[in-house]
Design a protein around this nucleic acid. Structure first.
Lengths: 147, 147
DNA sequence: TATCAAGTGGGAAGAAGTGGGAAATCTTGG
DNA sequence: CCAAGATTTCCCACTTCTTCCCACTTGATA
């Protein structure tokens, strides 16, 4: 399982190191997509297959019939990139994805169960401040709604 | 079962000794997560599997489609870390978790049934003062609400 | 008082992260 | 169609940080 938070620099060539702890689980080829909330999602090839299957098969309908679905899928699939992990564990972030997530010199790499997220460090710090408070509230809520 | 309270120092390298009494039960790999109320939770790998399964049990849905779920998962999984217990029973607390719990030089390690909690000593002392008073009242309340 | 176990501290070897240069590939202009 | 420039990719080297191991201290017990 992918867990934890790591701060890494993004160099002039748009490369960022994947935390050593994640490399084995991620494998050699990974998929990067524009995520939700100003970050990038990173999936293993396997996870990506699952995810894309679930996204396309919501209900039995053809996914392109719904306008919302079209928008969402264009974003998710059109913005995705398959990248290779180099010999020492780095990946190259395509320019258009770097822009999407407003990445600058320093990125935060977050393990969230079965995906990674890549944030610009500053945005991540800001986000975390709010999220910590919310998360405690959510915990209460969940404990209440549990059967 | 993990019970009791131990005060240990956190050294310059962010290491803290696990009380000798707990080591056998905890095993070699443990999971640390941000807890509720300014402390860290420490789980055995087994316990963690249970906990994370319950938390992520939103059936077949993609967990990242719900905003609340994203917030919660980022906090829970992104804030977690798997750490190894070294040969003489210490663990290394990652910086980001140390910050979360405002840990300084001295930590309180508390056994709470099937998990440990790690508090900054001062915060723990403060918390205890209040908690002792409250606990008596809560006992009344709980005895009333239990089915 | 001596011995053993537990806790604390620090040094050294190794791994991980970062940066840069060279080779290969692609593109553009002549 | 070829050549020059630019871009990308691959690889190597340096530096920093982590991890492992050993030794000292303290307190408890026989």
């Amino acid at each position: 399982m992918l867990i934890g938070e790591y701060i890494h620099t993004i160099d002039d060539k748009n490369r960022i190191s994947l935390p050593a702890k994640f490399r084995k689980e991620l494998g050699k080829k990974i998929i990067i997509t524009p995520g939700l909330d100003q970050c990038l999602f990173v999936f293993t090839s396997k996870e990506w297959e699952k995810v894309s299957k679930k996204l396309s098969s919501s209900a039995d309908e053809l996914s392109f019939l719904s306008a919302d679905q079209r928008t969402f899928n264009r974003n998710m699939f059109g913005g995705a990139a398959e990248v290779e992990v180099d010999s020492i564990g780095r990946i190259l972030i395509p320019d258009f994805l770097k822009d999407r997530a407003c990445l600058k010199n320093t990125g935060a790499v977050i393990g969230v169960q079965d995906r990674l997220e890549i944030w610009d460090e500053k945005i991540w710090v800001e986000y975390k401040k709010n999220a910590e408070k919310k998360a405690e509230g959510l915990a209460e809520k969940m404990s209440g709604s549990r059967e």
